[in-house]
Amino acid sequence: MAPSRQSHDDRQLWADWGRVHGPAVRGYLAAMLGRPDLADDLAQEVLCRAWQARGRYREQGNARAYLLRIADRLACDHGRKLAREVNWSDQRWQAMEPADDLAEPGENLVREEAVRELASALETLSPAQRRVLLLRYYGDLSFAQIAAIMGCPLSTALSHCHRGLAALRKLLVKSDL
């Protein structure tokens, strides 16, 4: 392939990753870590790492799975670090020092309520259940792909998914009734 053609393809690849898959990667990281501010930085890190190893991606082909695999590894590494740190997220800082926000106050209230509910829902899940459900949600990956990313047998991934959904049903579906 000619260099200019390859350069154009690389730029297109990078644009697709950022535009199509970037929000999902960021969402996955934010849900895994509970830190939207950190998720932004890590999403950039994911794209940079994916870019540096894009030769490996060309062998695999599935961009979303490739990016989420890197995101999952980064989230696990940072999750271990965060367990040893005491940090305040953006929401907690804004609660202490209200800043200007473009959203309407009503939207903010709804969102804050959703953030609290999501946090309590994620707390009911084990880390493995959280990974399976979030990889399934953001990546729309098959359970075989999820098991490969997590490095566990397919049966284990399915079991985590079933138990996680059962825990969510207990919390979310019952509370609606």
């Binding site: 929000p23 960021r26 969402g27 996955y28 934010a30 849900a31 939207p36 969102r111 949600y137 579906v173």
Partner: peptide, 13 residues
């Protein structure tokens, strides 16, 4: 319900 929560909490995702 879980998906709706994720969307409501992280609209940009």
């Amino acid at each position: 319900a879980f998906g709706q929560l994720l969307e409501a909490a992280q609209p940009s995702a």
